[in-house]
């Protein structure tokens, strides 16, 4: 089985939000809503500052509470790559999944169902990278199969120091940030 994940090189990311804009147009994310976003994490005091910039989105967790808590099965693990998806036709909008996500990755779409990053599965199934990955002008995002030892994502993880966001929440996030 494939296990899709992302590896994002914070050394190259400039926080330009192209990934966010691309997600908007690709997926028609309505005005005022975001499936992905940028976190700037600055530590230290002037002029000795360390700044980590992260392009964040649903982590497509391996242990996804949002799926477990869903009463209808709308939130589910897709049969391809462990991607966590929401079936709009099954979602009743109870918002339990929103409350369950430590990353606040979900939101209520104006049409009533809960929405979030899909890892652009419609593109991935056509052999393309997710929209955010494919536009990034710094080429800092990598998408691929974490279970394939020869995938670029795996090579990067094996060769570079990395971390996930909030692993202590225990959801097993599948997006990794290279340091």
């Amino acid at each position: 089985m494939a296990r899709f994940g992302m590896v994002i090189d914070t050394k190259k990311c400039v926080g330009c939000m192209d990934c966010v804009v691309a997600c908007k147009t690709e997926n028609n994310v309505p005005e005022g809503f975001n499936r992905d976003w940028i976190v700037q994490d600055a530590r230290g005091s002037f002029p000795t500052v360390n700044l980590e910039i992260r392009s964040e989105r649903c982590n497509h967790c391996d242990n996804p509470p949002c799926v477990y808590c869903c009463p209808t099965g709308a939130s589910h693990i897709h049969n391809l790559g462990g991607v966590v998806l929401v079936d709009h036709e099954l979602c009743i909008g109870c918002k339990a999944c929103i409350a369950s996500c430590p990353y606040d990755a979900r939101f209520v779409h104006p049409e009533g169902y809960v929405d979030k990053c899909t890892f652009c599965i419609h593109r991935v199934e056509e052999g393309l990278d997710p929209a955010c990955v494919s536009v990034c002008p710094t080429y800092c995002m990598y998408f691929g199969d974490l279970e394939d030892p020869n995938s670029e994502v795996n090579k990067l993880l094996n060769s570079r120091k990395h971390h996930a966001v909030l692993p202590e929440a225990g959801t097993k996030p599948q997006i990794f940030y290279l340091e």
Binding site: A2, G127, S134, D145
Partner: peptide, 12 residues
């Protein structure tokens, strides 16, 4: 199956 999946990603 996973072979074709991997191929998709490579082809991208």
């Amino acid at each position: 199956d996973n072979i074709s999946r991997r191929k998709f990603l490579k082809i991208s």
